[in-house]
Amino acid sequence: MTAAELKDFSEAADHVVIDVRQGRSFTEGHMPGALSAPYRQQGWSIPVANWIKQQGRDLAIAIFADNAIVANAASEGLRAQGVTVAAIFDGGTAAWQAAGFPTVSVKAITVDELAKCLDDWTVIDVREPYELRSGVVPGAKAIPLGHLEREAPELPKDKRYAVICASGNRSQSAASYLAEEGFHVANVVGGMSLWIGGGHPVDR
Protein backbone atom coordinates (compact mmCIF):
# COMPACT_ATOMS: atom_id res chain seq x y z
CA MET A 1 0.00 0.00 0.00
CA THR A 2 1.06 3.62 -0.46
CA ALA A 3 1.97 5.97 2.38
CA ALA A 4 -1.28 7.91 1.89
CA GLU A 5 -3.31 4.69 2.10
CA LEU A 6 -1.42 3.72 5.24
CA LYS A 7 -2.17 7.09 6.81
CA ASP A 8 -5.91 6.68 6.16
CA PHE A 9 -5.73 3.10 7.44
CA SER A 10 -4.04 4.13 10.69
CA GLU A 11 -6.64 6.83 11.42
CA ALA A 12 -9.66 4.50 11.18
CA ALA A 13 -11.17 3.06 14.37
CA ASP A 14 -9.88 -0.37 15.45
CA HIS A 15 -7.07 -0.18 12.90
CA VAL A 16 -3.58 -0.91 14.20
CA VAL A 17 -0.20 -0.50 12.52
CA ILE A 18 2.49 -2.90 13.78
CA ASP A 19 6.03 -1.73 13.06
CA VAL A 20 8.12 -4.90 12.63
CA ARG A 21 11.45 -3.16 12.03
CA GLN A 22 14.28 -3.43 14.53
CA GLY A 23 13.76 -1.54 17.79
CA ARG A 24 16.61 0.79 16.95
CA SER A 25 14.98 1.83 13.68
CA PHE A 26 11.66 2.41 15.45
CA THR A 27 13.34 4.70 17.95
CA GLU A 28 15.09 6.65 15.21
CA GLY A 29 11.77 7.36 13.55
CA HIS A 30 8.30 5.86 13.19
CA MET A 31 4.85 6.88 12.03
CA PRO A 32 2.72 8.32 14.83
CA GLY A 33 0.63 5.71 16.62
CA ALA A 34 2.47 2.64 15.31
CA LEU A 35 3.24 -0.13 17.80
CA SER A 36 6.75 -1.58 17.87
CA ALA A 37 7.11 -5.37 17.65
CA PRO A 38 10.46 -6.14 15.99
CA TYR A 39 10.06 -9.30 13.91
CA ARG A 40 11.99 -12.43 14.86
CA GLN A 41 11.80 -15.81 13.12
CA GLN A 42 11.43 -17.50 16.53
CA GLY A 43 9.14 -16.47 19.37
CA TRP A 44 7.45 -13.55 17.62
CA SER A 45 4.27 -14.72 15.92
CA ILE A 46 2.57 -16.38 18.90
CA PRO A 47 2.84 -13.53 21.45
CA VAL A 48 2.00 -10.87 18.86
CA ALA A 49 -1.01 -12.86 17.57
CA ASN A 50 -2.13 -13.46 21.18
CA TRP A 51 -1.91 -9.75 21.96
CA ILE A 52 -4.05 -8.95 18.91
CA LYS A 53 -6.65 -11.57 19.89
CA GLN A 54 -6.70 -10.33 23.51
CA GLN A 55 -7.79 -6.88 22.42
CA GLY A 56 -11.24 -8.45 22.29
CA ARG A 57 -12.37 -6.83 19.09
CA ASP A 58 -11.68 -7.39 15.45
CA LEU A 59 -8.64 -5.25 14.83
CA ALA A 60 -7.56 -4.51 11.28
CA ILE A 61 -3.80 -5.02 11.18
CA ALA A 62 -1.22 -3.39 8.92
CA ILE A 63 2.46 -4.27 8.91
CA PHE A 64 5.04 -1.48 8.66
CA ALA A 65 8.46 -2.64 7.44
CA ASP A 66 11.42 -1.39 5.46
CA ASN A 67 11.77 -4.39 3.20
CA ALA A 68 9.42 -6.91 1.63
CA ILE A 69 11.22 -9.99 2.96
CA VAL A 70 10.67 -9.11 6.64
CA ALA A 71 7.16 -7.74 5.93
CA ASN A 72 6.06 -10.97 4.25
CA ALA A 73 7.67 -13.17 6.92
CA ALA A 74 5.81 -11.26 9.66
CA SER A 75 2.54 -11.40 7.75
CA GLU A 76 2.90 -15.16 7.14
CA GLY A 77 3.79 -15.69 10.81
CA LEU A 78 0.60 -13.98 11.95
CA ARG A 79 -1.50 -15.78 9.33
CA ALA A 80 -0.21 -19.10 10.71
CA GLN A 81 -1.55 -18.04 14.12
CA GLY A 82 -4.98 -17.21 12.71
CA VAL A 83 -4.55 -13.45 12.36
CA THR A 84 -5.22 -11.89 8.98
CA VAL A 85 -3.02 -9.00 7.99
CA ALA A 86 -5.09 -6.48 6.06
CA ALA A 87 -2.25 -4.49 4.55
CA ILE A 88 1.52 -4.34 4.16
CA PHE A 89 3.68 -1.23 3.82
CA ASP A 90 7.34 -2.08 3.13
CA GLY A 91 8.80 1.30 2.17
CA GLY A 92 10.01 2.17 5.68
CA THR A 93 10.24 5.70 7.05
CA ALA A 94 12.01 6.81 3.85
CA ALA A 95 8.87 6.27 1.76
CA TRP A 96 6.63 7.57 4.57
CA GLN A 97 8.57 10.83 4.85
CA ALA A 98 8.91 11.17 1.08
CA ALA A 99 5.11 11.35 0.98
CA GLY A 100 5.33 14.35 3.31
CA PHE A 101 4.18 12.65 6.51
CA PRO A 102 5.82 13.28 9.91
CA THR A 103 7.60 10.75 12.09
CA VAL A 104 8.01 10.51 15.83
CA SER A 105 11.68 10.23 16.64
CA VAL A 106 13.88 9.88 19.65
CA LYS A 107 17.33 11.36 19.69
CA ALA A 108 20.12 8.92 20.47
CA ILE A 109 22.67 10.24 22.96
CA THR A 110 26.00 8.59 23.77
CA VAL A 111 27.18 8.14 27.35
CA ASP A 112 30.03 10.61 26.73
CA GLU A 113 27.62 13.29 25.47
CA LEU A 114 25.36 12.70 28.46
CA ALA A 115 28.25 12.85 30.94
CA LYS A 116 29.42 16.16 29.44
CA CYS A 117 26.08 17.93 29.89
CA LEU A 118 24.44 15.91 32.66
CA ASP A 119 22.88 19.08 34.13
CA ASP A 120 20.81 19.63 30.98
CA TRP A 121 19.06 16.27 31.33
CA THR A 122 16.79 14.53 33.77
CA VAL A 123 17.93 10.91 33.64
CA ILE A 124 15.19 8.28 33.92
CA ASP A 125 16.45 4.79 34.75
CA VAL A 126 13.84 2.21 33.67
CA ARG A 127 15.60 -0.86 35.09
CA GLU A 128 14.06 -3.06 37.78
CA PRO A 129 14.95 -2.15 41.41
CA TYR A 130 17.34 -5.11 41.85
CA GLU A 131 19.41 -3.94 38.87
CA LEU A 132 20.12 -0.56 40.48
CA ARG A 133 22.63 -2.12 42.91
CA SER A 134 25.29 -2.09 40.17
CA GLY A 135 25.12 1.70 40.30
CA VAL A 136 23.01 4.53 38.86
CA VAL A 137 23.82 7.76 37.03
CA PRO A 138 24.07 10.48 39.74
CA GLY A 139 20.68 12.13 40.20
CA ALA A 140 18.81 9.61 38.04
CA LYS A 141 15.12 9.04 38.72
CA ALA A 142 14.22 5.33 38.91
CA ILE A 143 10.99 4.36 37.15
CA PRO A 144 10.84 0.64 36.27
CA LEU A 145 9.55 0.16 32.71
CA GLY A 146 6.28 -1.37 33.95
CA HIS A 147 5.47 1.75 35.99
CA LEU A 148 6.21 4.27 33.28
CA GLU A 149 2.71 4.58 31.90
CA ARG A 150 1.38 5.32 35.44
CA GLU A 151 4.12 7.76 36.38
CA ALA A 152 4.58 9.62 33.08
CA PRO A 153 1.67 12.05 33.68
CA GLU A 154 3.49 13.30 36.80
CA LEU A 155 6.62 14.28 34.82
CA PRO A 156 7.00 17.99 33.95
CA LYS A 157 6.86 18.52 30.19
CA ASP A 158 9.38 21.38 30.16
CA LYS A 159 12.36 19.18 31.01
CA ARG A 160 14.60 17.09 28.77
CA TYR A 161 14.68 13.39 29.62
CA ALA A 162 17.52 10.95 28.94
CA VAL A 163 16.19 7.40 29.32
CA ILE A 164 18.63 4.68 30.35
CA CYS A 165 18.52 0.94 31.11
CA ALA A 166 21.11 -1.84 31.23
CA SER A 167 22.04 -2.01 27.55
CA GLY A 168 19.79 0.42 25.69
CA ASN A 169 16.95 -1.88 24.60
CA ARG A 170 14.25 -1.27 27.19
CA SER A 171 15.10 2.43 27.26
CA GLN A 172 14.34 2.47 23.53
CA SER A 173 10.74 1.38 24.11
CA ALA A 174 10.42 3.71 27.09
CA ALA A 175 11.82 6.68 25.18
CA SER A 176 9.53 5.98 22.21
CA TYR A 177 6.53 5.90 24.55
CA LEU A 178 7.50 9.20 26.18
CA ALA A 179 8.06 10.76 22.73
CA GLU A 180 4.55 9.69 21.69
CA GLU A 181 3.26 11.35 24.88
CA GLY A 182 4.89 14.61 23.83
CA PHE A 183 8.00 14.62 26.03
CA HIS A 184 11.40 15.80 24.83
CA VAL A 185 13.45 12.61 25.18
CA ALA A 186 16.71 10.95 24.22
CA ASN A 187 17.71 7.30 24.44
CA VAL A 188 21.11 6.61 26.04
CA VAL A 189 22.87 4.30 23.57
CA GLY A 190 24.39 1.21 25.21
CA GLY A 191 22.86 2.06 28.61
CA MET A 192 24.58 1.50 31.97
CA SER A 193 26.90 -1.08 30.44
CA LEU A 194 28.64 1.66 28.42
CA TRP A 195 28.20 4.31 31.16
CA ILE A 196 30.04 2.16 33.70
CA GLY A 197 32.41 0.76 31.05
CA GLY A 198 33.35 4.32 30.10
CA GLY A 199 34.35 5.08 33.70
CA HIS A 200 31.60 7.66 34.30
CA PRO A 201 30.57 8.33 37.92
CA VAL A 202 27.84 6.27 39.58
CA ASP A 203 25.87 6.45 42.81
CA ARG A 204 25.54 3.19 44.70
Binding site: Q22, G23, R24, P38, Y39, R40, Q41, Q42, N67, I69, V70, A73
Partner: peptide
Protein backbone atom coordinates in the same frame (compact mmCIF):
# COMPACT_ATOMS: atom_id res chain seq x y z
CA UNK B 1 20.55 -13.28 5.34
CA UNK B 2 17.94 -10.52 5.65
CA UNK B 3 15.91 -12.54 8.18
CA UNK B 4 19.00 -13.68 10.12
CA UNK B 5 20.22 -10.07 10.37
CA UNK B 6 16.76 -8.99 11.59
CA UNK B 7 16.88 -11.76 14.25
CA UNK B 8 20.34 -10.62 15.37
CA UNK B 9 19.46 -6.93 15.35
Amino acid sequence: YVLAAQDLG
